[in-house]
Each structure stands twice: as C-alpha cells, then as structure tokens.
Amino acid sequence: MSSVIPVSHLQTLRMSIYRFDPSIDDKPYMQDVDIEVPTDKDIMVLDALHLAKAKEPSLSYRRSCREGVCGSDGMNINGKNGLACITPLSEAVKRNKLTLRPMPGLPVIRDLIVDMKLFYDQLEKVQPYLITKTDNPEKERVQSPEEREELDGLYECILCGCCSTSCPSFWWNPDKFLGPAALLQSWRFIADSRDEATEERLDDLEDAFSLYRCHGIMNCVSVCPKGLNPTEAISNIRNKLISRKRQ
C-alpha cells in the first residue's frame, strides 16, 4: 500500500486507538498514532491500521480477506460498528480524526480484538445447520427459485458480530438473549424449504429471553456491513410463534 503512494500527496491523519495488552496494562488507554495518508485517493480503515501497525508493531487486530466477506475486522469506527476493510476513510474520518475501539459488549482480549465466545455460543444454540428427517435423494433436494429467494438477505451473513455487539439487549443479557446474528441464522433455516425442524426450532425460542428481548431498536440493521436486516428476521420468527399459538 504505502510503497505506491507518491510522497507529495500525503497528509497526516491522527488515529486514536484503543490499546490494551493484558500482560503489561492494568487498564486500557487510548493511544494517538499519526499516519500519512494519500490525499488523492481513498483508502480503507484497514489500510490505515496497517500504516499504524508499521509504526506500532505491537498493535493487534484481526483481518483476513480485506474485502468484506470473511468478517474478521469488525470494530467500532468513530462510534459505529463496521468492517475496517470496506469502510473508506472518506466515510469514517470526522474532523481529521479516526477513533477505533473494539466492538462493545464483549470482553477485550487485546487492543481491537474481542473474545467472541459468547457470540459463537449463541449462534450454536440455534442449531445453525440444515436438519432433515426424510432420506436424502440421490441428487439434489428440489427447491424452486422462489423458495430459494427466501434465503436471500439471510445466508450472506459473515458472522462479524457488528450487529449483536451494537445491540443494547445483547449487552444486558449476552448469555440469554441470542442476539440479532444468531436469530438471523435461526430464521435462515426456518425459512429454508428443505429444513424439516421448524417446530423444534420455534419451541427452542419460546422463552422470555432468547428472542423476546429484542425491542426493535434496530441498531443491528443500521450497522450490518452486508446490508442485512436481522430485525425483520426476528419479527418473522415472532409472527410464526404467535400464529402457531393461535392455531
């Protein structure tokens, strides 16, 4: 990245980055790191982090695909959760400052890296896999294009955690409320015409917390880097739960 930028087109950007190394720090602190960024082209927040890490090699963050499909680099960018690799500085920087913090609501392991165990545990609770009872045919299970379309907006989830860690209901009850990401996956399988465990899936959500702690705040929708709508998925499940009670 840095090698291709002509020196004449650089300006200084002050990054304020959350730092915490459990082996040396008693508590976290914000560190200012000044980096040189190009003025004639946009770069991503992740590129800016690489430049900061070149100056501060101990700075730690997760990253992998750098194109918004692997979900590694979810973080809190100037107050809003997002993926560093697809958030351009032009969008993120305010008053020439870029503040980066770990995603809120989960324990911090180090710097921008959070412990996602709770998040993954909640995902596993919804049995995020296709459950079938009938025997598999020799070829594919038939699914019409219309049935398949029901999965659009659901299967694309990248498990970055931006939604659940921006959800106040998840902050209060991360062990009991499943959170938007897990519930989106729950609906992804309920909505799949091939799945044969809808009733059991719904049964598992019939308590006061798992699903019903969603209060429709919709932070999940506003931060999802893939443009998905967990609130809608949750209300779809809610409708199913209510309508089967009426029957």
């Binding site: 997760r62 992998s64 695909c65 499909v69 692997c70 979900g71 590694s72 498990l159």
Partner: peptide, 10 residues
C-alpha cells in the same frame, strides 16, 4: 482464524 474467515470464503 475462525474457520469461516478462511480464504475459501472469497
């Protein structure tokens, strides 16, 4: 990495 962060995802 967490498995779904592997490069197959791309």
């Amino acid at each position: 990495v967490f498995p779904t962060r592997s490069h197959t995802v791309s």
